[in-house]
Nucleic acid binder design. Structure first.
Lengths: 380, 380
DNA sequence: TAACAAACTGTGTGGGTTAACAGTGGTGGT
DNA sequence: ACCACCACTGTTAACCCACACAGTTTGTTA
């Protein structure tokens, strides 16, 4: 018998016969405050004072305790701790306004579920919305949430100045915040959850053109517009990534744009029809918005079978098109997980006092008729 | 002001101006055993006995408590509960033996990490290995683990009989177990974690042939063999799914097999070389094992640039080939997550007494040089 | 009225947090 | 030499919530 204690792992190699190794692992040796007190020759009161940086500890005592702490890597029982604190925590969340947008609704479901799953703690979550193209609406919403005196915030950044104003206040009062969807690295958030839009567009280009084939001379890019601008920053950045791929790999392929205005839904059919009749050689369409279904449903209604369509986000109407075969590929973003994990990060940091990773890029997941059901099932 | 209490969610609609809605959510109202006792006019001890179905409760008292329970939907604080139980839990894990197989190593890392992350509880994990093609080795390993008197088990099933023998014993003594990697639905496990191999092969076929193109007359299927058989059930099932796709969609495309024996690594180069020289028109290769890198590294060594390769599993050597460009696609299985979630399911069920989902099919995730890094980052 | 269950209450436990309080030794002033 | 005052330290208790067991109160039967 050979015992090899290694960090908190006790690896016990019994036999190495026929490629077989047996191991054991035990989740730490349960070091309590009491144990630290015994080891360092002081009382639990003193250990507690050192741990919580409270006054009235001599340099000598602190040194002794610190020495033991360094040696054993003490992790307080986070649940006993949270239980004892018996505190209420308020989280706030600042999102872009969205009406019929299933993407943000999924994010919200995730936020909510994370709070509900932690029902053993006293958590509250407040949400406010802002207009993506109106700086003052961001500040107003931020102000409203600020009055809630949050212990932590989830923020979908708007422009740099407005976001910085909010975050400076948060940082001054040591209120941690995470960024969701898009990041501003200069303002260092506790954590970031989102997707690398540039890489995502690049990836889309690779798959899209693999299907289209080398011979393709012209493709259609559908763009969702709002007040004359591309409707979201994500959409914008993905297009940049896509175009850089196309410029490098398929420089002769023409990208024809089809802009559709949010709020002018009744015009879409005519606009699409006109475009397709003007350019009858087009067979491959892509969009970086979450509304590929606008084209997909058009193809379905008009019985157009030999079109290929690439889009983003697993929302209800897109899923239906995947099933029907009018959308070939979707890139998924796990909005539910982004929401869930954002709150989870705040919770782990604030309530359980655990370390959290700073960057969380969601995987670039490719969905087709064959695999989308596993994507859905994965979202617990 | 309008208050609408709905389940445990308090939705507070403040304004519906410009698509903006504000909401609040609070994680339950914290009903304690004490509260139930007060409401039903008995002591906490009596409530506790009702909750845990222990004897010595009068019909009258039980009725009173039940009435209150029905009314309020009591959820005990799982952490206070686990703290009070102060029990040690032993989990056991039965895996196929593997030497240089990075796939199972990832599974094991996940198992281990899950135990380590729950350091606030007294968990132990014991692992044993069996030979996939030797029934008696499974029974032996199972016997060794049985002696540990596990509170829960993670099992990678072998054949039906051997697995059933173990699981019957477990079911008799009410020891929950989860199946990992492959499922046997007749033996109803607490939970299953794995991938749908048939669908996976089908999916692979779709992507693979999309890249190959309609004109492709002949493709290469590399098979990893052990003792004259396909080396794993997963590999076998994926091939079935793949062939059913090919039969339906590309019936004229010839599938040429290249079997490679485990343990005869020194012969691989010659075998591959011979195959490629005999069939010089082959440009597209696929394997359902995790060893696509065998071909990928061959291409690299011999400077063969216009071959396309499709494989499985994000292991170190495959990742290197993805980067180098000799592997085009990998289907990922999240082995780390499978391991992690298996233990998590046991923990949630046994320690926290929470409900767990029965089936967990891992997403069929497609990895390329462009997106593999996000896959890695996602595995926390 | 004692004996004896059944039914029920009260309380200690788990680990951590916090505060109140008592005690120690040392310093400075008179 | 005495006291006041201080920083420091140890002890204790209450609390968070669920659990489990030792006791106590009931009710019934001999």
């Amino acid at each position: 018998m050979l015992h090899v204690p290694c960090h908190r792992i006790l690896m016990y190699l019994r036999s190495i016969i026929h490629e077989r190794v047996m191991w054991e692992i035990h989740s730490s040796e349960k070091i309590r405050i009491k144990d630290i007190a015994e080891r360092s020759g002081v009382s639990v009161g003193t250990v507690d004072r050192v741990l919580h940086d409270r006054p009235n500890v001599s340099k000598k005592a602190k040194a002794k305790v610190d020495a033991v702490l360094k040696e054993i890597n003490y992790q307080p029982n986070s649940y006993a701790s949270a239980l004892a604190y018996n505190r209420k925590y308020t989280f706030c969340c600042l999102l872009p306004a969205h009406s019929c947008n299933a993407y943000w609704t999924e994010v919200e479901k995730g936020l909510r579920q994370c709070v509900l799953n932690r029902g053993d703690f006293h958590l509250s979550l407040f949400t406010e919305y802002y207009d993506q193209f109106d700086e003052s609406s961001f500040s107003e919403a931020a102000e409203k949430l600020w009055e809630k005196q949050p212990d932590g915030m989830v923020v979908v950044p708007q422009n740099l100045e407005a976001t910085r104003t909010l975050c400076s206040k948060l940082q001054e009062t040591a209120v941690p915040f995470v960024f969701l969807d898009s990041n501003i690295p200069e303002i260092s958030p506790l954590s970031f959850f989102g997707q690398d839009s540039l890489k995502s567009g690049h990836f889309a280009g690779r798959i899209f053109m693999m299907q289209a084939g080398e011979a393709t001379r012209r493709i259609l890019l559908m763009k969702l517009m709002s007040k004359g601008r591309v409707a979201s920053r994500q959409q914008e950045n993905r297009e940049v990534g896509f175009r850089s791929y196309m410029a490098a790999q398929h420089p002769t392929c023409e990208i024809v744009e089809l802009p559709l205005q949010i709020g002018e839904e009744e015009r879409y059919d005519a606009q699409i029809g006109e475009m397709l009749s003007q350019l009858p050689d087009i067979r491959h369409c892509i969009t970086f918005s979450s509304r590929a279904h606008i084209l997909g449903e058009y193809f379905l209604r008009h019985g157009l079978k030999d079109f290929h369509l690439f889009g983003y986000d697993m929302i209800e109407r897109n899923m239906e098109c995947l099933k029907q075969g009018t959308i070939d590929f979707l890139v998924a973003q796990h909005p539910w997980k982004q929401g869930y994990n954002s709150v989870k990060a705040l919770f782990n940091h604030i309530v359980l006092r655990k370390a959290v990773q700073q960057y969380h890029y969601m995987p670039l997941e490719l969905l087709t008729a064959e695999n989308y059901m596993y994507y859905i099932a994965d979202e617990k």
